[in-house]
């Protein structure tokens, strides 16, 4: 008989404790949750579930960890805003304009009116206006043009599309001519597949067959280490 009051008292204590804990929970409730699975990124950003990251929405480029709107004739990338196909910047930082000078589409030299870029360099049926050169120093380095001096007359060649874009995986380089992501060192898009035809490397860039990566890559000549390809790769000479 004595145990019943004790049990009741114990039950009351337990209930008191439970109420106290509930009070704490109620007090904590305003903390709420910050995580919204459907909205994991910031302003003008979208979530890339495959690579678990935020990227800029279409029309925005990543600049200083912020997605900024790209201007007319620009496309957004992880490195900022680049000129759209067929457009170029007359100078670094300038707005993209239809390529009337350097890079302007042409079929013959007569279409290249700008005396500075009076050479129509043909790649197959299509060509673009550029300049003659003896070394890459003669070319527009800000736009990554490089001198192809392997022919009778040296000519400044434009880089493959996407070359130099920041990347984490090759998915970031998809759709570009430079469709391989070198993710170990530079984390930039490079053109691959030059082993069979090293001349696809623009200008004075060289072709290295890097077996550890399972592909061959076009790399700038200053990336050679004492004249040898990095990563134990094999230098593929040009056929010309």
């Amino acid at each position: 008989m004595k145990t019943r009051p004790n049990r009741r008292a114990g039950t009351r204590k337990l209930l008191g404790g439970v109420w106290a804990l509930l009070g704490v929970v109620a007090a904590v409730t305003p903390y709420g949750c910050l995580y919204d699975e459907t909205d994991r990124c910031g302003t003008s950003q979208t979530y890339d579930a495959e690579l678990e990251r935020c990227v800029c929405e279409s029309g925005f480029g990543l600049v200083d960890r912020t997605c900024v709107p790209c201007r007319e004739h620009e496309v957004g990338t992880l490195s900022g805003c680049d000129c759209a196909e067929g457009f170029a910047r007359p100078s670094e930082g300038a707005a993209c304009q239809k390529a009337e000078t350097l890079g302007k589409a042409c079929a013959s030299d007569t279409e290249c009116k700008d005396p500075k870029y009076s050479v129509c360099h043909l790649e197959g049926a299509a060509g673009y206006c550029t300049s003659a050169c003896e070394t890459s120093e003669d070319c527009d380095r800000t736009l990554n043009y490089a001198c192809d001096y392997f022919g009778a007359v040296g000519v400044c060649e434009r880089p493959p599309t996407g070359e130099g874009h920041a990347c984490a995986t090759s998915a970031d380089c998809a759709g570009f001519e430079a469709d391989y992501c070198e993710a170990f060192r530079e984390k930039k898009c490079l053109r691959q597949g030059c082993k069979q035809n090293p001349s696809i490397c623009h200008g004075d860039w060289v072709c290295c067959d890097i077996s550890v990566l399972g592909t061959s890559l076009c790399i700038p000549p200053d990336a050679l280490e004492s004249g040898a390809c990095p990563g134990g790769g094999t230098l593929i000479p040009r056929g010309e």
């Binding site: 994991r40 990124c41 935020c54 992880l78 920041a166 995986t169 970031d172």
Partner: peptide, 11 residues
């Protein structure tokens, strides 16, 4: 982010 781009909010 490690994979390029920016880090997403997380739980």
């Amino acid at each position: 982010a490690a994979n390029g781009g920016l880090s997403p909010d997380r739980r």
